[in-house]
Amino acid sequence: MDIILKNVKKKDFPVLKSLAKSLGFEIVEKEEKPYNPEFVKEILEGQKDIREGRGIKMTIEEIKALCK
Results as ranks from 00 to 15, higher is better:
66 L>W: 01
38 E>I: 07
24 G>Q: 03
59 T>R: 06
59 T>E: 02
33 K>D: 04
20 A>I: 00
47 Q>K: 15
64 K>A: 15
62 E>R: 04
8 V>M: 06
9 K>D: 14
55 G>A: 06
26 E>H: 07
25 F>M: 15
28 V>L: 05
17 K>I: 02
24 G>K: 04
24 G>W: 05
27 I>N: 01
45 E>N: 07
23 L>F: 09
13 F>K: 08
3 I>H: 10
7 N>H: 11
2 D>P: 08
13 F>H: 11
13 F>R: 14
13 F>M: 15
63 I>N: 00
36 N>F: 05
62 E>Q: 14
16 L>A: 03
61 E>S: 01
10 K>T: 11
65 A>T: 02
13 F>I: 13
19 L>D: 02
60 I>V: 15
28 V>P: 01
9 K>R: 15
35 Y>H: 11
37 P>G: 02
2 D>S: 13
30 K>L: 02
38 E>N: 10
11 K>A: 14
54 R>N: 03
9 K>I: 08
27 I>A: 02
44 L>H: 09
66 L>I: 02
28 V>F: 04
13 F>D: 04
60 I>C: 06
56 I>K: 09
35 Y>M: 09
12 D>A: 14
57 K>L: 05
10 K>G: 10
40 V>A: 07
60 I>M: 15
47 Q>V: 11
68 K>E: 03
16 L>W: 03
23 L>H: 15
59 T>W: 02
14 P>M: 04
1 M>E: 15
15 V>H: 10
54 R>H: 06
24 G>V: 12
39 F>D: 13
21 K>V: 10
34 P>K: 10
8 V>W: 07
29 E>T: 10
52 E>M: 05
28 V>K: 10
50 I>C: 12
52 E>W: 03
45 E>M: 08
36 N>T: 10
58 M>L: 10
6 K>V: 09
